[in-house]
């Protein structure tokens, strides 16, 4: 349900991405229309039970949409949720999963 497809690392030319070993992803549009068109591929609706997050996805704790990145998330990454205009930082929970914490 992540709607992403992995791209081989060597295809990535962005210097920042090349600095670490993160997997990268091509983001497809999923019908999310709550932000201007150029940003739509970076968000999708959470489908509830049976849905799961990819390594490049976190849920916004404020508005519950899934925020997607072209790169695998790591703790410390800064994230912006355009649908509710919240700013967050990615943290690792005790169980090892990643989540976003809102910063005010």
């Amino acid at each position: 349900m992540t709607g992403t497809s992995q791209v081989h690392q060597t295809l990535e030319t962005d210097r920042e991405v090349a600095d670490d070993d993160r997997r990268t992803f091509v983001l497809d549009e999923t019908g999310f229309k709550e932000v201007p068109k150029r940003w739509r591929r970076f968000y999708r609706h959470w489908q509830g039970e049976g849905d799961s997050l990819g390594p490049n996805e976190v849920i916004c704790p404020v508005c519950k949409v899934v925020i997607r990145s072209t790169r695998e998330f790591r703790p410390g990454d800064r994230v912006y949720c355009m649908p509710c205009m919240s700013r967050m930082v990615v943290v690792r929970r005790d169980d090892g999963t990643l989540e976003a914490e809102v910063t005010y």
Binding site: V62, C63, P83, C84, S86, R87, Y104
Partner: peptide
């Protein structure tokens, strides 16, 4: 629901700074 996302976002973000 899409509208409410913005509204709850404003509530948390704006009040989060004002309440402090």
């Amino acid at each position: 629901i899409a509208d409410e996302r913005r509204h709850v976002g404003f509530g948390e973000n704006r009040i989060g700074s004002l309440i402090s």
